[in-house]
Design a protein around this nucleic acid. Structure first.
Lengths: 126, 126
DNA sequence: TGGACAGATAGAGGGACTTCGATACATCGA
DNA sequence: TCGATGTATCGAAGTCCCTCTATCTGTCCA
């Protein structure tokens, strides 16, 4: 899809083009914060893992064992285990072993952190 | 002086927001929604692109031309152009050509939609 | 009109990711 | 103790992503 919008701006000051590239960057996040935030977003940036998170939240009690995820996801056990590990290492879910099962649960605060990190910037922008 | 500014915004995922940003906590999301949401998160899941978004928001007027991003990011022009393209195709930023510069701007609503989709219902989830 | 400059594109190299089958580990029940 | 079952890890194949250099397009100014 390509949207073509045509804007017609009147510029009163011919020299204004030179101002366009004034140095900016005040209050932008630093490299460290970006490097810390990206992996968590990367953990979320997979259809399978989004579905896993959604399924965990929707599950009765907010928990589900890994074996119950394989069938609806139509993925092999090692693959599901891999995705759960990624989510675990990103701090987005936690697992609790109960006998031979591991019950997984979403950590809501972690999701909220990410959401908040994306939201406040909108205040200054709008 | 009259400048004619042309907006060319390509969205690789047409109609994606309608299905992409169903909150994760409102029942189990289906495969289509997950497939639509993941690429937008993937666009965000890169330190360079997070910094670009932050820099655009922090810039005076909320816009910056691509050339001003290269130095602080310490990346080549093609690399910065590539990242801007990814953000553009995810619908997270838009570019507006002014003369030989292209001014980029974050689309706050898009960020807000992602944030809303991630925001868990802490009351029920915790 | 030609040089200078901003931006986009093409292609390549190196690395990371997703998925699988095979296999090891952990726990339960008989 | 032994077999069954749930989970984790390993290694491989294929794909995708980030970055670069080289090059092309588009725009401005002398």
């Amino acid at each position: 899809m390509v949207d073509i919008l045509i804007f017609v701006n009147e510029c009163r000051y011919p020299g204004v083009m030179e101002i366009c590239c004034t140095p900016l960057h005040e209050g932008e996040i630093d490299e460290l914060r970006a490097e810390a935030m990206a992996p968590v977003l990367a953990a979320l940036a997979d259809p399978v893992r989004l579905r896993i998170i959604s399924m965990l939240i929707a599950a009765p009690g907010g928990t589900s064992c890994g074996c119950d995820l394989e069938a609806p996801l139509e993925l092999s056990q090692p693959t599901v285990s891999h995705h759960l590990k990624v989510l675990r290492e990103a701090g987005l879910v936690e697992g609790e072993r109960r006998g031979r099962w591991v019950h997984y649960r979403v950590i809501p605060a972690r999701l909220a952190e990410i959401a908040d990190a994306l939201t406040p910037e909108l205040v200054t922008a709008s």
